[in-house]
């Protein structure tokens, strides 16, 4: 999946003032790339990921998904893309607390209407791949922070997405666990040829990224 933005801008109204979180961003993301977006807090990283992940609408400017203007897509079509072509990894994992690790991973497949047997087999495999084969029936509160992020990554991979969007995936983790998660995302990118777009402060991620972008006051600059 190729993603391209043209003058992508997102403004928010806070009280009587207007904040430009993303300001005329032009970015092209090609298939199977590992892209790191770095910038200080409040620089617009998460807003940019939200727009690219079709979770938000730009104030103006355009996003193209494989040459299709996303603004022309209906809510249902955007949802379908989020479900089947994009995987999300959040800083605070956002696992559903009442579901087990296995059920959290099965959920996107269930929403996509895949058969129960296939969901179960694949969820088990994905959790084994992220090193949680012995944690299948544990609820999020019974898992460590690192394990929760692994479950979140397994969930993001459930529907074989073409792109994984990770918003500060190591923000809550200690350095050792963060290193493991970075390794996992890197492996996914290299072995599965899945595009990975990561918003981060983590220098280790910056080191492995194919493309490094910096963002400040909503303006994006491609470094290499």
């Amino acid at each position: 999946m190729r993603i391209k933005t043209e003058d992508l801008t997102r403004k928010f109204r806070v009280g009587s003032s207007e904040i430009t979180a993303v300001n005329r961003v032009n970015l092209e993301v090609n298939e199977a790339k590992f892209i790191a977006i770095v910038g200080p807090s409040g620089s617009g990283k998460s807003t940019l990921l939200s727009l690219i992940g079709l979770n938000d609408h730009p104030t103006y400017g355009k996003i193209f998904i494989d040459d299709t203007d996303a603004s022309l897509l209906s809510g249902r079509e955007r949802r379908k893309i989020r479900l089947s072509r994009i995987g999300f990894v959040f800083q605070t994992f956002n696992l559903l607390p009442t579901l087990t690790a296995l059920e959290n991973v099965e959920l996107p497949m269930a929403l996509a209407g895949k058969p129960q047997k296939e969901q179960r087999e694949k969820a088990v495999r994905l959790l084994k791949n992220v090193g949680l084969g012995d944690r299948l029936s544990h609820r999020p509160r019974e898992l460590s922070i690192g394990e929760m992020q692994r479950v979140a990554i397994a969930r993001a991979l459930a529907n074989d997405p073409e792109v994984i969007i990770a918003d500060e995936p190591t923000g809550e983790l200690d350095s050792k666990t963060a290193k493991e998660i970075i390794g996992l995302l890197f492996d996914i990118n290299r072995k599965l040829k899945t595009t990975v777009i990561v918003a981060t402060h983590d220098e280790k991620i910056v080191e492995v990224a194919d493309t490094l972008c910096t963002i400040g006051d909503g303006k994006l600059k491609v470094e290499h």
């Binding site: 992940g53 979770n55 249902r76 949802r79 379908k80 893309i81 989020r82 479900l83 089947s84 999300f88 959040f90 956002n94 559903l96 607390p97 959920l107 996107p108 929403l111 996509a112 969930r155």
Partner: peptide, 13 residues
């Protein structure tokens, strides 16, 4: 709210 937002984000109808 976060659960519903997560469901929405991952594409739940």
């Amino acid at each position: 709210r976060r659960d519903f937002a997560t469901l929405d984000a991952i594409g739940a109808p």
